[in-house]
């Protein structure tokens, strides 16, 4: 089993990790996480159910089941990835399996914004370059190194320019994608504020 899940927080500048290649256009959110897994009070257990039906069909030969891909964190996909419903469960399931960033030819709109909200940067590349990457025989277990500021991916001696929306890039670099962390940065101001509020002082029963 992998280590305990800890989600992305704060400013995101680099992602370093093993790639995992998933080949196919128009992979929809129902395939990423089938509807029956949505009846839940948390996203916690979604990781193990990612691509549940596809994986069952392939009986151990799905990329997410192959031994060499365990621990991978950079997902390489083709076009229109994540089309279908608006469920945030889809990126949550990928994230909880271990995916930290996705590179693809194109993404579905809602899936893309859901990814941003949970701190999973998505980059695009041309069809050809994606194909080239997906054909890499990663024998040396070299890691991919993604630099969000430069928008590049480095692998061995190869270095490619990635594309990402400028606004998304800014949010990752500043940490603003993660509202909680942005708010927590002002912890001292929050503590000061609570001491200034008159009603906190005269409502002793609430302490």
């Amino acid at each position: 089993m992998r280590n305990k899940f800890s989600p992305p927080t704060g400013k995101l500048t680099t992602v370093v990790g093993k790639p995992i290649m998933l080949i196919g256009d128009d992979i929809d959110t129902d395939r990423i996480i089938p509807a029956r897994f949505l009846k839940c009070v948390s996203f916690d257990n979604l990781g193990q159910s990612v691509f549940a039906d596809d994986r069952k069909k392939l009986d151990g030969r799905h990329p997410f089941d192959l031994e060499k891909n365990q621990g991978a964190s950079i997902l390489i996909v083709n076009s229109n990835f994540g089309c279908g419903s608006s469920r945030e469960h889809a990126p949550q399931a990928l994230l909880r399996w271990g995916i930290r960033t996705i590179i693809g030819e194109s993404f579905a709109e809602i899936f893309y914004s859901n990814c941003i909200a949970i701190g999973v940067p998505c980059f695009t590349l041309s069809k050809e370059l994606i194909k080239n990457i997906q054909n890499i025989k990663n024998q040396d277990n070299d890691l991919f190194e993604i630099n969000i500021l430069e928008s590049t991916v480095k692998y061995g001696s190869m270095k490619l320019n990635l594309e990402i929306k400028n606004s998304s890039k800014k949010m990752f670099l500043s940490g603003e994608w993660d509202a909680t962390s942005t708010l927590l940065e002002n912890l001292n101001l929050i503590e000061k504020k609570i001491n200034e509020l008159p009603y906190v002082k005269f409502n002793k029963s609430l302490h």
Partner: peptide, 10 residues
Amino acid sequence: RDVLATQTIA
């Protein structure tokens, strides 16, 4: 979630 964590919201 933000209120639980920080008692504030944006």
